[in-house]
Design a protein around this nucleic acid. Structure first.
Lengths: 164, 164
DNA sequence: TATTGTTATACTCTATAACTATA
DNA sequence: TATAGTTATAGAGTATAACAATA
């Protein structure tokens, strides 16, 4: 018994679909867990990530996060209440509101990003550099294909500035 | 201009962390979108996936999904209300309740799984079989490492029976 | 006493619809 | 009229705490 081509155990003989689903859940859960240690949800973390180098309007935030404007209102409300972001009136358009991070918001976002990078580093530590490069290439190819395809999902930006 | 080693565009020069985060969001969003077409959330889809070959108690469902028992109560309430699952009293333990899918629940779950597999197939269609095999190996290695590590997250089972 | 499950409560996240103010 | 944003409302999803029934 125990033929080497018939593995046993929880990950035995995963097919591509299962492997990608599990990997996706793993990364997603990892981010949720690390963000949660700072009382941040994934969407709050992404909000702070987007604001790292921009001060978009509520409307732009809606497009970047793929959410309705009313959802953005609540999201920004809760973040503002915690002192993580601020609303400022637009100089050009008196209807518009710009959102920016505070120092506290930037600090939190940086902590989550650092912890996330470290954890991903641990999870991929067993892969040789050439394999890591291949993994990047595969992921990039899949992402590119999803863009060229139909839907072209709302917005996929790097890392924590990416869509949930 | 346009040196070939300095790419431009949205996915230019992704590092491993960004690539994995984006891939994770892509797969997660894909599943959410396809499940949503049937009015199913990811967690509802996973519930039905788990019940495909089991009739666990509420308690066991909590462990499998990594959720509190009170969350399971609500989750099963909503699924039961839609006729996707049923509660049945346990014969052994009169405190316990077993949950099972209905034919409608199984049909919905199967439709989502089929669509998800098809979409993953599209996204990976550009990869040669040998590259697909490598991708499976990388994902499997990362998942195994996450298990051997500390936390050993709640429960990672194949595909739609896996943790959110 | 410990365990199983439900209920009450509270909060985040999301959307739709209605509304205000500005363009 | 059209757009930017907020608010009211509704519902899913999650957790904590208190409870009832059973072990």
């Amino acid at each position: 018994m125990n033929r080497p081509d018939i593995e046993s155990g929880p990950d035995a003989g995963l097919d591509l679909v299962d492997a990608l689903a599990l990997l996706s859940f793993l990364v997603h859960d990892t981010l949720a867990e690390l963000a949660g240690r700072h009382e941040l949800s994934i969407v709050q973390t992404r909000l702070l990530g987007i604001l790292r180098d921009r001060e978009p309007t509520m409307n732009e935030l809606g497009r970047l996060l793929g959410l309705d404007k009313s959802s953005i209102s609540g999201l920004v409300d809760r973040a503002e209440r915690r002192g993580l972001v601020t609303r400022t009136a637009s100089a050009q358009d008196r209807r518009a509101v710009h959102v920016a991070t505070t120092a506290a918001g930037r600090r939190l976002a940086a902590e989550v990003e650092t912890a996330f990078s470290a954890r991903i580093g641990e999870l991929t530590a067993g892969l040789a550099p050439s394999d890591q490069a291949r993994l990047i290439a595969y992921a990039t190819a899949m992402i590119a294909r999803s863009r060229s395809d139909q839907g072209d999902h709302p917005n996929l930006e790097p890392r924590l500035r990416a869509k949930t």
